[in-house]
Amino acid sequence: MEVEERDPVSGHRTTGHEWNGIKELDTPVPRGVLIFLVITHVFAVTWWFLMPTWPLGTTYTKGLLDVDQRAIVEQQLVDAAAERAPWIDRIERASFEEILPNEMLMSIVQSSGHQLFGDNCAACHGVDGRGSANYPDLTDDDWLWGGDVETVAETMRVGVNTEHPESRVAQMPSFGRDGLLNREQVNSVAAYVYSLSNPDYSTSENIDEIEAGREVFLTSCAACHGANARGNQDVGAPNLTDAYWIYGGDLQTIVTTVHGGRHGHMPTWDERLTNAEIKILALYVHSLRVEKP
């Protein structure tokens, strides 16, 4: 029916059709393609026999190997736990005093702690633990609740102001908003607190205000922050005489703090992290501080 036509380059016949100048050769499917086709199909069919594959109404073929992705990962987790058991056990059982000088355990603390801190704590305390406005720096010497490793671990376990039954409770009252102090008093006590860490602030002009602030401080604040304003770790009240601030040490922020109060919230890690992980993190936090010049 069609006129036979050959392509001069390849020598193959055309199909005899033509679409606006386009022609096709009738070249047979190259052998390689067929081989390739067979190989991939053999692979696929083999796989279907080995693995769960074909749906059958209300069930499916389970495959000769009877594998299940969930069973596999659960086994892997069990194996992983067994692999870690030797040192996990030691960390769990040993006291912090025993772990600290142990180089092997401390190197694990370093590597594992880095990841745990990055994935759990960095969102608030920063990747390097230095905190930011509203979140305390964990690398300095100023601690709300205490910086020894046990206390840090305990802080992590119960959290601050959480729903954990043993939660630490930190409540900086809102003196201004709740009318405990009037505006003038708030300003003066703030000026006083500010002057504690900025001695140059006190001049002959504002000395009266600062003195008045000191009075207010002794009556309203000393109960928590101590008469010397050096804080009290039993109630999580920070030291107000040093250069470390959670919310900020400029006068304006101090006024805001005294006016509105503060109610920091540190989550509890009791349920999310294992005991060993909490210990590792406490040691890791400890090491962050040690490293600081």
Partner: peptide, 25 residues
């Protein structure tokens, strides 16, 4: 997603390479 569907997806993707490369070739 149940694993059986994943097996189908994987094996058919492998077989799919043949017609794909056939077009490119």
């Amino acid at each position: 997603l149940p694993q059986w569907v994943q097996t189908l997806g994987m094996t058919f993707s492998v077989m799919l390479l043949v017609p794909s490369w056939a077009s490119a070739g």
